[in-house]
Amino acid sequence: MEKVNTLFKVNEGGPLEVTGNFRVVNSGGKIIENKEPVYLCRCGGSSNKPYCDGSHNRNGFSI
């Protein structure tokens, strides 16, 4: 897997950290972000979705 160009780190109780060569697109196919790193909300509670805003620290998200 030497050709891997993007890394996703699933932070326990926190966001999905994306680094490397990638682009974030919305469901309409529009590129909304392509600079690293990006922290994507995994807890469902962010007020700034799809990005993390630290809500996981307040809503008890732990997995």
């Binding site: 160009n5 993007t6 996703f8 780190k9 999905l16 060569n21 990638f22 697109v25 919305n26």
Partner: peptide, 23 residues
């Protein structure tokens, strides 16, 4: 570049040459 698609009211769909690691 790896495609990171944010599905409306749904998951993050990822496609490309990537690696995923846990906490």
């Amino acid at each position: 570049p790896t495609n990171v698609r944010i599905m409306k009211d749904g998951p993050i769909v990822v496609e490309g040459q990537f690696k995923a690691i846990g906490g």
